[in-house]
Design a protein around this nucleic acid. Sequence first.
DNA 1: TTGAGGCTTTCAACA
DNA 2: AAAGCCTCAA
Length: 757
Amino acid sequence: MNLLEKLNKNQREAVLHTEGPLLILAGAGSGKTRVITHRIAYLIEKGIRPYNIFAVTFTNKAAEEMKNRVMNIVGPEGNSVFIKTFHSAAAYILRRFGEAINITKNFTIYDMGDQEDLIKKILIDLKLDPKKIRPAMIASKISEIKDKEDYLEGVDPALLLPDYFAFNFAEVFDLYRNKMTENNALDFNDLLCQTVRLLRESKDSLKDMQRMWRYFMIDEYQDTNYSQYLIAKYLSSATKNLCVVGDDDQSIYSWRGADIKNILNFERDNENTKVITLEENYRSTKQILDAAYCVVQNNVNRKNKNIKSSRGDGENITWCIANNEYGEGEFVINNIISLKSREKLSNRDFAIFYRTNAQSRIFEDYLRREKIPYRIIGGMKFYDRKEIKDILAYLKFIVNPNDSISLFRIINTPVRGIGKASQDKISEIARSEGISEWTVIRDELMTGKVPKGLDDFKKIITALMNDLPEVPAQIKLSKFMTDIVEISGYRENLREENTLESSSRIDNINELINSIYDYEQSDLDATPEQFIQDISLYTSEQNPEEKHDCVTLMTVHNAKGLEFPVVFLTGMEENTFPHKFSIDTENGIEEERRLCYVGLTRAMDRIFITNAELRRNFMGTEYKTPSRFIDEIPREYMNMKSYISQMFNRESKFDERFETRPYIQNRDKFKQAASINKNENRNDPSDKIIISSEKKEPEKRESGSRFSLKESVVHPEFGVGKIIKIEGTGDNVKLTIDFGTKKRILLEKYAPLDKLN
DNA sequence: TTGAGGCTTTCAACA
DNA sequence: AAAGCCTCAA
């Protein structure tokens, strides 16, 4: 069978072992994905129906990739294999079977932002100060609890919550759960926890699923948490055909509740487990693999392995010490440029890794300056942009009118004169009557002074809700989204604003609608519910645009499962990587070290490790010592370099220039320097540097103002003044007027100004 | 009562 | 760099 031809002995054994529990311990680069995809193909070839196979991975990217590779081997019928992430599999199960435990199909998935908004409301209701008790902290504690075994085994959450003097955490937790139910919303943890509850409480649903799925494959098993462990266990309990794949050295999600015990105890938990180890590394050169291995061997809590490179010798690792973060950026970009010209490498062969998203900015600036296309995985995501979240909140709310978080996001967006006071009143009535906020608006239950915009809002939402049942059939989803943007007045509002920023927001909204159009092409029965779910869970890719030949920038976490010919592992400094929050505990350091191992083992041919001696963060500039992980790499594998920034040698003039002046001035200078020679391409939307510097210039022409620059005017309160700046157009004309003692910025539309005659 | 601009604070990794 | 609070104007 040619399916097995390309596999080594152990890989082949893993593919052929189809019945009963199977544990595959797969070191980095050992062809793990190949084994999984070939195993799926083999099952299908053996006559197993594709829809009987259930496979989950950790990221959407990996799931997509896996499906493509399966389809490459078996053809279009591979499309019916159930390949998803754990979270999207759980969401699928709950939408299909959730009614058995009173979860309605149209539930909304709350992301971290939605969660924090809700918690903030709860804190304010309890007369607690969200400034002192941070909603983000509460959210992460709640999430932590829900990942715990005790919580899933029915221990009272009040006993699991930390004790704080300032407030009653259990009360906040209860209110949070009640509100989530009222809003018909689930957070990321709920998707998993509620699936566990469903599998436990509805034997009928479980049976249905067990009839449907008979072979199970779980990728990245070392990063599963307790609820994921249970889901796999319950689903596979009928057939016991559970295959898990993982590597304890690559466990990097303990902060999300991942429990290494799941993989370490798999053998004990499942009788007759077959264990297969994949130790042959096909990805990296000997230097890279040995170096990575030397680092991870400093961990005490790990299983020892015997990993071999099948690729043999390659180039040494390059370690570069840069004087500051600019030097680091220049070093990386210079190496990309020179490698591209010396060897036949494309942009897509390069990846830049960093520990935290905030480190990406300087690399972006330099890449843009050199006009090298790049893409960022993670970070500030397309779907996190305000305008995108706003438009999606309309859709979410129309699908699920109990979703009060989305309601308050859109009720006054665009501005309709329904401010905080009015919103509070609506909440108050809803609470006292025990009904939803939307019912208050729909049935016009607000007494006293009702803002005039409220009726408009009601009409907008009602009109859209009436169209909703038609969406998958007659109206297309993309058409419906276009209606939302038009009917809500959102697009009109941005159009009137008429700034560079607002037009870029319009572009983003158009981009969203385009991506919805693509989405409905790929799935002709796409419902709004399905779409919302997919994007709520799909956050790893940034822009739907540009898929072409790009340098990839991402955090080390995001790099898991990927490989690149050339990797730059940057910011290798104590307190950056290892991160300062992990540095105090042994477990923390070990996880950082595994993360470093993951980063190093992504590289196929070459790896560059960089650290900056001086780095500016939001607090100020700090001297940094090289990461302890660099010390753990044997020197014979390394070539050392140092690099001093050609553009900003901060160190040389540190005292007089950087102690006193704010960072932003230096950044502006950098931006100016970066945009020199690039003026011919002013309309290139990728060139944000130029756009942002243009934005500051006052609009002089066509403002439509009845005044002109330097004209003298009279204000009843401020007296006589002189116009020193005119910005905006039409109703938005803003006048900056110097009244002698003080300067004021006034809107021409409202300001009671007269010409001085 | 709403909206806009200025000032202050704060900063991990992800589905 | 970005988000939240405070103050001022209409």
